[in-house]
Write a protein that binds this DNA or RNA. Sequence first.
RNA 1: AGAGAGGUGUCCGAGCGGUCGAAGGAGCACGCCUGGAAAGCGUGUAUACCCCUAAAGGGUAUCGAGGGUUCGAAUCCCUUCCUCUCUACCA
Length: 425
Amino acid sequence: MLQVNEIRDNFDRACEGLKKRNLPEPESLLQEVLKLDDKRKQTQVERDGLQAESNAMARQIGQLMKEGKKEEAEAAKRQTAAIKSKVKALEEDYATCEESLIRLLYTIPNVPHPSVPAGKSAEDNEVVLQKGTIPALTGTQKMPHWELIKKYDIVDFELGVKITGAGFPVYKGKGAKLQRALINFFLDEAEKAGYKEVQPPILINEESGYATGQLPDKEGQMYLAGADGLYLIPTAEVPITNMYRNEVLSESDLPKKNAGYTPCFRREAGNWGAHVRGLNRLHQFDKVEIVQITHPDQSYPSLEEMSLHVQGLLQKLELPYRVLRLCGGDMGFTAALTYDMEVFSAAQERWLEVSSVSNFETYQSNRLKLRFKNQDKKTVLAHTLNGSALALPRIVAALLENNQSDQGIRMPQVLVPYLGFEWIS
RNA sequence: AGAGAGGUGUCCGAGCGGUCGAAGGAGCACGCCUGGAAAGCGUGUAUACCCCUAAAGGGUAUCGAGGGUUCGAAUCCCUUCCUCUCUACCA
């Protein structure tokens, strides 16, 4: 959620930024925010003033009672009724104001960083860099991963359908081991990079969902455990970032770096089609997430650091990849700047998104009330960042497709110690 | 899951209808004391929103959360969350 004071102080900058997101009329929208906030303040002044009066009267009555002046006290009591009903009315006004202000703020996405390119869709994303060699596959050695997994019997979709439904695959044998190897590899790398490993809950309450911005706008994307009002996490970002909800850290604690492995659950309602065959899109998948809480001055250097960390993983996995700077139209609601990492899946001949690294600046921390005390002892909002490092299924897809040959599928060297084998054959 | 107890400031802990943002202690900060330190003494020690601002000052709210009773609630009532003890169950 944007900060009202920031909007007030940097009105033009906010408008310019929101235009990159193709918001039709950010000016009037932001004006509306300021108007509501003004009204809120004005109501507060009135309410507080009357409440002060009411409090004074109550004190007076107390005093009179003590002095035994019963008659006078009773008379004073009768006078309070009018003021009380006014206070009550103003309290309701205030609550209404505040609620509509917050509701409006919830509909406004984060202001993009100046470096974010304008644009409408994924087509307009900026390719920052591309690395690695795209393998040249031919003939029988150019099987898409959904055929390879059948050939080697390592991932079983039909079995998942029986147990749960579409999009819940069963990993078997070397397929299951590959999952475990990747998770351990990613966690070990994160630890080396200074991230503290955590294992958070994978069900979250409503408050957590609001705090990191999944609610209210992505309500339909999450699975709901209705009996208990809990949501299955769509990403470990939610529980890990929420560890710091309502916290005041000290400046010396920053940056906080956490990494965690969790399964992730996404309903992906209305998001299915031919282009999402096999492992390309699932309802349940595994991911290692890295999360940072930083000083506002440090968040962009940290974002670069996280991007390099993810790139390092892809290099070690010997996968050809590219880095995109997302345009205003393609960027997530809560992000100020996002890099997407895509690997090339050689049989599908497609780039697959395997990571998304974002700086949210204070958009999340404002809802989270995640602050720190700076050197002037002032409490200020921290910046939050997170990124996938990495999401497994598409990595698996690319590994299978890119490394296939007549001898089988060769695993990258870094994984061999984790796997205990080099070939899937 | 059942029965009981309880949730107060950085921490411990008192308060159980009025002057309580909240006794007392510990901690922390600053000052005095000291050759230095400890002890001792003194002073200070929450957050949010808002008013007025040059500064100072002031208002409102906050004693797990939400609602209610009352002129007035940390104190009474209701709902809810959490913790502890016992019982039951269980990976």
